[in-house]
Design a protein around this nucleic acid. Sequence first.
DNA 1: CCTTGTGTTCTCCG
DNA 2: CCGGAGAACACAAG
Length: 301
Amino acid sequence: MPELPEVETIRRDLEVKIVGHRIKDLKILSVKTVALAPAVFYKNLIGQRISKVLRRAKLLIIRLEPSNKYLLVHLKMTGQLIYKVKNKLIVGGHSSGNYRSGGRNVDADDSKNLNDLPNKHTRVIFTFTNSSQLFFNDLRKFGYLKLVTELELEGIVRNSYGIEPLTKEFSLINFSQALKGKKTNIKAALLNQKNIAGLGNIYVDESLFAARINPKRRADSLKPGELKVLWLAITKIIKRAVEYRGTTFNNYVDSAGRQGNFFKLLKIYGRGGEKCPRCHNPIKKIKLAGRGTHYCPVCQL
DNA sequence: CCTTGTGTTCTCCG
DNA sequence: CCGGAGAACACAAG
């Protein structure tokens, strides 16, 4: 599940690897994946040069020149962006899998999958003029590629997303303001991209655990002290997750085809039934805000 | 049946 | 009846 840290890891890799490259060819293997008629998509992309790779929440934003349009890439649950120079792999992405039940080992499978691209989940292939290629893979076809103008991008960025962790605007005051008056539970409030941008199921559970706050609490019931602890927890966890190049709970791979390392630091996510690392009571797994939710009912109040 | 990010639709309440 | 908030559903495929 790519959330902010995973998408940011991909963004940083792509920034180094594809900025300056010109698109020579394009193959659309899944029409549904591209939010535009294939012929129009070809016409708009071929000949364009990548000038920037940006991110807002979980959305990747690729600037094209000279058209000055933007290619938006959303990975949703199982999307991957994999960059390949001839036979060597450079940039990774995400897909679904199950390393935990399989014994915490995805290296072998990933390497195998990445080495024979395109595979059956490849939906779009970009070929650059230097012959390198970018593959968009997506097992479940939830992800999409979209082309927008600068004006449309501004609208999306402004209207769809709240404050962005890792930026200066993510202050305690703005964080508190974003949750103020929210009558829903804190888990749903944090998952809502219009409040806080980029958090998903894993990092919300981890942050609430670190802050010792029960995910069922009403957002507007949090006291100033609790808001501060939660804000600090989110800041710390997201920063560290980026340093660790994201979480491979399933099949995330980085630029060298390696998994993200933050899974080693997960305290609560995916640990239903195990002992709480803080108080040693059983970790509960419930359904909340329509999502699997892991928490310790004893030490998260 | 389960998994999840997000867009859409439904429902509730004042 | 309207607007907004929040909840529920839809989507896909393994």
